[in-house]
Write a protein that binds this DNA or RNA. Structure first.
Length: 179
DNA sequence: GCCAACGTTGGC
DNA sequence: GCCAACGTTGGC
C-alpha cells in the first residue's frame, strides 16, 4: 500500500517524452540572442546546433532527437525571455564538428572523431510566432506548470516538451497546428 | 548585479 | 568514492 514515501518529490524525468500522435517528438532549444538569436536563425534558414557541452543534453542530441521532430526556439538571458518560433529537425545526431576545430571556442581535444564525445543536430526554421510567447505568459498557463523549462533550477539547454505542451504553445504563438 | 541551483574537478 | 571548491547557467 502506498505510504508517505511516495510524497518524496517525483522529479519529472527530463528524457523520453512520449511521442505525439504523429510519432514526432518535441523539444525546446535555448539560445541567448546575443550569441545566436532567432532573427539570425530565420535569415540562415538552417543551422547546426553545436557547442552543447552537457552530458544530459548530449544524450538527447545523440539518442533521442530525430529527423522531423519539432523544436521550440527559446531566448534565454534576454528581454524578454520567450519562445520565438518553431523549427524542425532536419538531421539527427552526428559528431559535433566544433569539438574537432582547434580554433573553435568549443574545441575539445578529448573528443575522438571515431568515438565523439559531443553531438549536434541540424534544424531548419519553420515559422516565427506572430508574437513571441514570453516566459511570463508560459508561467501563467496552468497546463504548462510541468514544463521542464519552468521547473526550479532547470538549466538544460536542450529539453523535452510534451505534445500537449507543444500544441498549447503553438496556439499561444498563433501558429497553425499543421506545419 | 546577485545568487541559487547545478555540474565538474581534483585532493584525499 | 567522497565531498569541498570552483565554475557556469540563467532567472530574478
Amino acid at each position: 500500500m502506498a505510504t508517505k514515501k511516495s510524497a518524496a518529490r517525483p522529479k519529472p524525468s527530463p528524457t523520453s517524452p512520449p511521442p505525439g500522435a504523429s510519432g514526432r517528438r518535441y523539444w525546446l532549444f535555448k539560445s541567448e540572442p546575443t550569441s545566436y538569436g532567432f532573427d539570425r536563425f530565420q535569415r540562415d534558414g538552417r543551422t547546426s546546433w553545436n557547442g552543447v557541452r552537457n552530458y544530459q543534453a548530449r544524450n538527447l542530441l545523440r539518442d533521442e532527437i530525430h529527423e522531423h521532430d519539432g523544436v521550440l526556439f527559446y531566448h534565454s538571458n534576454a528581454a524578454p525571455m520567450a519562445v520565438m518560433g518553431i523549427a524542425r529537425v532536419v538531421r539527427a545526431g552526428y559528431a559535433d564538428q566544433t569539438a574537432f576545430d582547434a580554433t573553435s571556442p568549443y574545441h575539445d581535444p578529448d573528443s575522438d572523431p571515431d568515438q565523439p564525445t559531443w553531438f549536434q543536430v541540424d534544424i531548419a526554421c519553420v515559422a516565427p510566432f506572430a508574437q513571441p510567447v514570453t516566459r511570463d505568459r508560459l508561467k501563467a498557463v496552468p497546463e504548462l506548470r510541468q514544463m521542464v523549462l519552468l521547473q526550479r533550477g532547470s538549466r538544460l539547454s536542450v529539453q523535452p516538451v510534451t505534445s500537449a505542451e507543444w500544441r498549447t504553445i503553438l496556439r499561444l504563438g498563433g501558429v497553425e497546428e499543421s506545419w
